[in-house]
Simulated assay, not measured.
Amino acid sequence: MTIQADVAPGLLEQVDQPRVGDAFGELVTRCWAAGARPGSVFEVLERADGAVFATDTSHWFSGPAQWNGAETWACEQARGRILDIGCGPGRHALALTEAGHHVLGLDSSPGAVAVAEERGLSVVLGELGEAEALGAFDTLLLLGNNLGFLGSRESSPAVLAQLAALARPGSQLLASTRDMRNSQVPETLAYRARNRALGRLPGEYRVRIRSRATATPWFEYLYASVDEVRELVRDSPWALCDSHQEGTAVAVRLELRG
């Protein structure tokens, strides 16, 4: 059977790419409006090889009882003045604030910042490179797999230096990531093998977040094992002091040298 469609010339070419925008902010805004109800909104992470991964957006609103053990362990180490980098709608910032900590959130998503503010949190809209005006902190958080902001072996020294510029003497950096070495997904195994062949770390991903017809710009994101984190920080202002792993979930504690 042949199906014919009456489509105006050029129409398909006009709609074959998503609009670039605050896709993450759209997702958390819709989920918040739905009461952060599980199953109400799904986030799609698209990798550069075409693989897509869907997750329930409500996890960005989960409380400590729903966190993995690595992130629970990381939050238990938090102290002093805290900067939650890439805070999203504030799941970690909210729990730490309610526990009596002084927490400031930082995120580049206008939608996520608006939701975090609605939840009563103190949040700044901006990028990591713009954060020095916020002063110095005792604890920096990169949770929700946000160690991924290191991006790659090549970009990590600059990011680690930016983080050190926000830290007081004796400060710590608490970060979480995923150790994907034991993945059994054929596409992920192939992607990691291609990275190795190109001289990259296996967990260097190029991804974007999708929300309906909106997508973030493509960005580099790193998934690393504890040994790879140790390699990345070796010549940085930071020293790896402790780690906690449960399954693929990894959290690390770095201390500012000197």
Rank of each mutant, 00 (worst) to 15 (best):
L94R: 12
L141G: 03
D49V: 13
Q4I: 14
R192W: 11
L141P: 06
V115C: 12
E220I: 15
V52W: 09
P237W: 04
A23F: 07
S152N: 03
V252Q: 06
L143Q: 06
T55F: 01
P217Q: 01
A213K: 15
G120M: 14
S171V: 07
T57E: 00
V28Y: 07
P217A: 00
V20P: 00
P64E: 06
E231P: 15
A8F: 15
L143P: 13
G126E: 00
A136W: 13
V103H: 08
C241L: 12
W67T: 00
Q245R: 08
L150G: 02
L173N: 07
D227P: 11
T214H: 11
S156E: 01
R19C: 00
F219K: 03
W32L: 04
A93R: 11
S183K: 10
T97V: 12
I85G: 07
R192I: 07
G203F: 12
L143M: 11
I85M: 08
D49I: 13
W60P: 08
Y205I: 07
T177N: 01
G25S: 00
H102W: 14
V123E: 02
V15M: 02
L11P: 06
G50Y: 04
T139C: 06
L83K: 08
E231K: 15
G126V: 10
D16L: 14
S171A: 15
R194M: 05
A213D: 11
G25F: 01
R119L: 05
C75V: 12
A51M: 11
V52R: 14
E231N: 15
C31I: 04
R47E: 01
L174P: 10
R79Q: 01
G50W: 11
V250R: 00
Q14M: 10
R208K: 04
V7F: 10
A164D: 06
A33V: 09
T248H: 08
H244W: 14
T72M: 04
A213C: 15
A164F: 14
A239E: 05
R192K: 09
V159S: 10
A99N: 05
A93S: 12
F53I: 14
T72Q: 10
A65W: 14
V250E: 00
P202A: 01
L128G: 00
E118K: 15
C75S: 03
G88S: 05
W73E: 01
R230F: 09
C75Q: 05
S152W: 07
E132L: 14
W73M: 07
A133M: 06
R208L: 01
W238C: 03
A8T: 15
L128F: 08
H59W: 13
E187L: 15
E46H: 04
S155C: 09
V7C: 04
R178L: 05
E46Y: 07
P9D: 02
D107F: 06
N195M: 08
A224S: 13
D6Q: 14
A161D: 03
V103I: 12
F61A: 07
C87D: 00
E187A: 15
R234F: 09
I209S: 06
A114E: 03
D235R: 15
L45T: 13
G105M: 06
G63N: 09
G148T: 10
W218S: 01
S176Y: 10
A239G: 06
G88H: 03
W67I: 01
G35H: 13
S243C: 09
A249R: 15
E220F: 15
L83V: 12
A190W: 05
G80K: 05
L140P: 02
S40H: 05
